[in-house]
């Protein structure tokens, strides 16, 4: 059994954990909610898993479960990015108003 590709995946997993920790350092408190919302949109990456599960050859049962996963993940992705953008638009408007 060739485990090398699997080890490579575990390697990426470990490095990504450290990178994720390093990326967040000093975040101003007004940005806590948008940052949470923005990274929530990224966790909608589960959409890729749902897409891959929707293969032509699968049984109807697995197809429909995968379809449900795809719908929920799409809500997460599209809604997540849009709501974050709206939050940040308001945040920017507030900031500019303050500076004037």
């Amino acid at each position: 059994m060739d485990l090398a590709p699997l080890l490579l995946l575990l390697f990426a997993f470990t490095l990504a954990i450290f990178l994720g920790v390093e990326l967040i350092s000093k975040v101003p408190s007004q940005l806590h909610t948008p940052l949470m919302s923005g990274s929530n949109a990224i966790s909608g990456i589960a959409i890729v898993g749902a897409l891959m599960a929707l293969n032509v050859g699968e049984s109807p049962v697995t197809k429909w479960i995968a379809f449900a996963a795809l719908v929920f993940a799409s809500v997460n992705v599209v809604g997540g990015y849009l709501v974050t953008d709206r939050m940040l638009a308001m945040f920017q408007a507030k900031n500019k108003g303050g500076k004037k």
Partner: peptide, 24 residues
Amino acid sequence: AGFIILNNVLVVAGCLVGASGLIL
């Protein structure tokens, strides 16, 4: 989920969110 279907973008993006979310 990325480890189930062996998809690296799921593993990397999921992990980034997992770790940065914990720090946040």
